[in-house]
Nucleic acid binder design. Structure first.
Length: 147
DNA sequence: GCCAACGTTGGC
DNA sequence: GCCAACGTTGGC
């Protein structure tokens, strides 16, 4: 999962202990959370749109997908008019908790340079999804880079 | 700040 | 259902 550290960083996650992953407003990303995120699943916590993009640590799913209430809140930056009209949020969120803080960032540059990771979704052309699938092998490789 | 790539919107 | 216009993402 991607996050802008200016908005919500790894440090914020550690401080908060449990974070509700609200604000996802892309159907494909939503479907990944809704269909594939199970309690106990591990996720890579990726810092994007910043000076040093890369994976800062790993987290785990502590609650499976449930409706994202910010879609119904007119005061939220994630407010969604279509959801308000139906009275039901069409967006979901999951809760995650920190697991492993990387001693060094697994930078995007390092990920690019690792031949074993060349087929990662993250590196594919035009890839912008904030939630992306990661294989077990890729996950292990990146975790090793962070040590 | 630039810009390529992509998703969404809305007129027809 | 097509597709142009627009908005967003995200690395650089």
């Amino acid at each position: 999962m991607k996050t802008e550290p200016d908005v919500f960083s790894w440090d914020d996650l550690e401080l908060k202990k449990i974070a509700s992953w609200d604000g996802v407003r892309n159907y494909q990303a939503r479907n990944f959370m809704r269909d594939d995120f199970k309690v106990g699943d591990k996720v890579l916590f990726y810092h994007s749109s910043c000076a040093d993009p890369g994976v800062a640590g790993t987290a785990e799913v502590v609650r499976e997908a449930y409706p994202d209430p910010t879609a119904l809140d007119p005061d939220s930056e994630y407010f969604d008019e279509a959801s308000r009209k139906t009275g039901v949020s069409r967006w979901v969120m999951v809760d995650v908790s920190p697991v492993n803080r990387f001693s060094k960032l697994a930078s995007l540059t390092m990920i690019r340079e690792n031949a074993k990771l060349k087929s990662m979704a993250l590196l594919q052309r035009g890839q912008r999804l904030s939630i992306q699938p990661v294989s077990a092998a890729e996950f292990a490789e990146i975790e090793a880079m962070g040590r």
